[in-house]
């Protein structure tokens, strides 16, 4: 999958960008890893694309942008924190 590979390459180059940018990249990688690409809805794909355009490919990313990204993902029922899942006791 091209986007997943692109994100992987961008992640490898993370030291060239600010940490907040790398946070957006790892959020997207986590979301895409946990959700079969073919099963994403049109609105979910649109949200991912909007995040890529505005934050991954855009200018500097700030802390306040992280909040926008998590809101955009949650709005389309994608969970940015899913890889941080705590195992149930």
């Amino acid at each position: 999958m091209a986007l997943f590979d692109d994100l992987r390459n961008l992640w490898k180059a993370r030291t060239l960008r600010e940490d907040e940018w790398a946070t957006v990249v790892t959020f997207l990688q986590g979301v895409l890893h946990r959700n079969h690409f073919e099963r994403l809805s049109a609105t979910q794909c649109a949200a991912i694309r909007a995040i890529v355009d505005a934050y991954v490919a855009g200018g500097g990313v700030r802390d306040s942008d992280i909040q926008n990204v998590t809101r955009m993902l949650r709005r389309v029922r994608l969970d940015p924190y899913e890889p941080l899942a705590v195992a149930e006791p």
Partner: peptide
């Protein structure tokens, strides 16, 4: 800690 990020990539 144990659960985190094992499956991102």
């Amino acid at each position: 800690c144990i659960q985190v990020l094992e499956t991102v990539d």
